[in-house]
Nucleic acid binder design. Structure first.
Lengths: 143, 143
DNA sequence: TATTTAGGTCAATATATTTGACCTTTTGAC
DNA sequence: GTCAAAAGGTCAAATATATTGACCTAAATA
């Protein structure tokens, strides 16, 4: 009886994750759709913006997808002049990915909806809850 | 300067969500892959298991996808005898979806990895952090 | 009886993903 | 200087998925 109650409570947690993630991705998804882009484009813009001069290989590692799966969306972003790729000085094989100013603008708009949303959520939950949330998510993120 | 620091902290939160969600879905995804199923099949199994006699329309509502997008995975699950659909007694138009015993077994295996993972995470974080996490996620799930 | 609702299906299109091969340029070990 | 390895890019085929829009039945209900 105790175990079953705990399972019920853990299933509620599963649903919190499911519905939270959907809520969290809706903002950017709506903006992306209007431009014929998808969530992968946002992820590329996000991580390139997060670490300018990121290499293609490092981007692949963080996204955890195949080279072929990255190929198209990245090519599109470069063609749209949202991402630039220039040869690295220290290693001519490596390309350094960066956001162009247009790329920065779009990234700011996409991620901006999520920053706002999280600011609101943490505002409602309060700083102690935010801290505990971060601690818990840290455990979850690292297996 | 203050605002920029807060943005940095919120971006860390964004990344916690991204990596947490990936970690959270990996377990079921690996099991599903071996059977030629995907995350949508798990979602169907989950919500049907959660509410036996669920109608197709109600399933569509909770999943928030089109009838056509549901059609294939649901048909497959029924064909594999993991989900049963029987006419409702009270309204002959409505089908009541239920997990078969094989469906229950698979659902338990899939969701079981997530239950275990969350039990571990909450165990590490502690009951107070769990409570605060739930409160915060609740705000996030409801916009 | 006529309309609405729940459900199912089809076809066309568009997209995305995966597998696997193959190519160039550059680096670095020998 | 040669050669294997690394970084990156691309292609093609097969597969999978999603989207749009149409159309159908059976059952409920106004």
């Amino acid at each position: 009886m105790v175990d079953q109650k705990r399972e019920e409570s853990l299933r509620e947690a599963i649903e919190l994750i499911f519905f939270s993630y959907r809520s969290f991705t809706r903002g950017p998804d709506l903006i992306l759709e209007k431009r014929g882009l998808n969530r992968m484009h946002h992820r590329i813009l996000y991580f390139v913006g997060r670490e300018p001069a990121l290499s293609v290989n490092d981007l692949l590692s963080v996204l955890n997808i195949s080279k072929q799966a990255l190929h198209n969306p990245l090519r599109q972003l470069v063609a749209m002049k949202l991402v630039s790729n220039s040869k690295s000085r220290s290693d001519g094989r490596v390309k350094e990915l960066r956001l162009t100013s247009a790329g920065k603008k779009l990234e700011a708009r996409l991620t901006g909806t999520q920053l706002l949303q999280l600011a609101e959520v943490f505002g409602q939950a309060g700083p102690d809850a935010e801290k505990a949330w971060r601690k818990t998510m840290h455990f979850l993120a690292n297996d």
